[in-house]
């Protein structure tokens, strides 16, 4: 079979099978339990029914995710630069950064709400915290992994520190930065959703997807709950797709990860 066709047909067949099994399980369930597993059709219906509130919640969550993500990028760049410039700073801070990366931020969500207030602010802070560590760790690694021969070349031509950083270290750290960015991009919508789940608020314009999830769940609107999950999934895809495109733009000319197999 044509490999291209194969790569379309096989997943399509698997998807069809999955949906068939889904329906089979659903109709095998006792009638009074069936509401627990909405069918894909019912989920689509929920989109129509709750379109407005879902759209509003999606916008709010996107806003929180974008702001937290952007803040994490900016702050991590600054910190990574500082860490890369001074091995003293790096050696003293790195273990704690790693530890913080392992710390489940979500545990502190309730207290964060008290610190910064419910709503968008909390969502942004939680998203920031979740995205920040993979970014800072990867970018720092990139900035200190510059090819030593190239550093020597720059010394040879008596480059000043700024030239060494911006013409050499930063470009050569880009692949590492994008690795961190890709991880952070998958985390950002999830972070915003989770943040909203614990710290969201209907104040202002009605909360985000996490807040909606709580409402749907308390109202036993399970098709709408599934629809919320689907929206979050799509949001994640969009974030990652954007990062992958940026990464391709920045790296495909020169980086080996984009080496074409037919060369």
């Amino acid at each position: 079979m044509n490999p291209r066709l194969k790569s379309i047909l096989l997943p399509a067949a698997a998807g069809a099978l999955f949906i068939a099994v889904w329906y089979a399980i659903r109709f095998a369930m006792a009638e009074e339990m069936q509401f627990l597993l909405p069918t894909p059709g019912e989920i689509l219906g929920a989109f129509r029914e709750n379109g407005d509130s879902l759209a509003r919640a999606t916008l709010n969550t996107t806003e929180g995710a974008l702001l937290g993500f952007a803040a994490a990028i900016l702050v991590s760049m600054g910190l990574a630069l500082a860490l890369s410039l001074s091995s003293l700073v790096r050696v003293s801070l790195y273990p704690y950064l790693m530890m913080l990366q392992m710390t489940p931020v979500i545990i502190f969500a309730p207290i964060l709400v008290l610190w910064v207030g419910a709503g968008l602010k909390s969502v942004v802070v939680i998203t920031f915290l979740i995205c920040f560590f993979p970014l800072v760790v990867n970018t720092t690694q990139g900035l200190i992994s510059t090819d030593r021969n190239l550093v020597e070349l720059f010394r040879m031509y008596r480059a000043n520190k700024a030239q060494e950083i911006f013409l050499l270290r930063v470009p050569s750290a880009l692949p590492y930065f994008f690795t961190g960015l890709r991880i952070a991009a998958t985390l950002a919508p999830i972070g915003a959703l989770v943040g909203d789940y614990t710290a969201g608020s209907s104040a202002g314009d009605g909360g985000g997807l996490g807040f909606q999830a709580i409402i749907y769940s308390s109202q036993a609107k399970y098709p709408a709950l599934f629809a919320t999950a689907a929206v979050t999934c799509v949001l994640g895809f969009i974030f990652v797709a954007i990062v992958l495109s940026l990464s391709w733009l920045a790296l495909h000319h020169w980086h080996d990860s984009y080496e074409r197999a037919d060369r």
Binding site: N149, L153, P171
Partner: peptide
């Protein structure tokens, strides 16, 4: 003075023309 190392030590993200221009840019 100029140095030619055993490795080409080119900057992989720059085109050939821009690589050649690096010492000039640094100056």
């Amino acid at each position: 003075l100029a140095f030619v190392f055993q490795e080409p030590t080119l900057l992989p993200w720059l085109t050939v023309t821009h690589n050649v221009g690096v010492p000039l840019q640094l100056r």
